[in-house]
Design a protein around this nucleic acid. Structure first.
Lengths: 144, 144
DNA sequence: TCCATATGGTTAGCATAATAACTATATGTC
DNA sequence: GACATATAGTTATTATGCTAACCATATGGA
């Protein structure tokens, strides 16, 4: 995660986009500022989570499982759809969380034997509870 | 680049942060929405640039060199500072741009032999000019 | 029933990011 | 002048993302 530290000046954008009448330099600069702020925040979040032994994706995968009001488990494709990441990435993330003992196959598996339902272990729930408040405080403190 | 597709509801955030009085659920949700929008835009930008044979970092490194009003070259550390990325990443990015023939060592090298000044080649300037308008149009079209 | 097609998940290979550790060159102080 | 320290850049290692290709299981139509 990264993004430009030195944003282009509005004058520079205006010069480059002079022949693009549908592009407003002020708006483009505002979008760039937001991108910069978002990337800095994501970097901060990743550093915070890494301090707790988790990548952002690992943390969010746990959140997706915890968040289901009616259920205690989810299948891999359900998690991938909610996170908007590719299946292979999720496959690795789930393997890593399993290795850490934070998630495990759910007690009841579905009839469809292609699927694996996954639940948080007690250790997983505890880790998640430890990390969540600081995560929301970081989000709250962001000026975005 | 990615971020949550299904954002948590404000009620869910409120429940989790009930004992954090300094965290406002509405504000947290707004920050999450901005993060989501920023990550989607970055993914779109990366896809656009990849279609032109460049990664985002490669493109931005070229922009940093082009952008200097008084100069036609920059050293690696100057580029890294403006982009806010680590030196090793920049080292690879510059090697890759050199392999593509888009940048080359500048005609005049500084006395300090540790440094390498880098300029855009004619092919580099042409590629940059091809790509830039679409880049700004993507930024302009973003609702961020 | 059987075969084509779809879906869930993993593996393989590539690109890009980070930190740590390295080489080479400059600089500044004794 | 010589040695300690700082700076520019590269290499090694690790983590995380992607697409493409691959198994295994389900499903649906002839």
């Amino acid at each position: 995660m990264f993004f430009l530290k030195d944003l282009p000046s509005e004058a520079m954008i205006r010069g480059v986009t002079a022949d693009l009448p549908d592009v407003s330099p002020g708006h483009v600069l505002s979008v760039l500022s937001h991108l910069r702020a978002a990337s800095v925040l994501m970097r901060d979040i990743e550093a915070y989570l890494r301090g707790h032994g988790l990548s952002q994706t690992q943390f969010l995968a746990m959140m997706m499982i915890m968040r289901e009001p009616e259920r205690t488990s989810l299948s891999a494709v359900e998690i991938a759809a909610r996170l908007d990441i590719s299946k292979p990435v999720l496959s690795k993330v789930l393997a890593s969380l399993t290795d850490k003992g934070l998630i495990a196959p759910a007690a009841s598996q579905p009839a469809d034997r292609r699927q694996k339902q996954l639940s948080l272990t007690p250790a997983g729930k505890q880790r998640f509870a430890q990390v969540l408040p600081g995560y929301f405080q970081l989000l709250h403190a962001a000026n975005l």
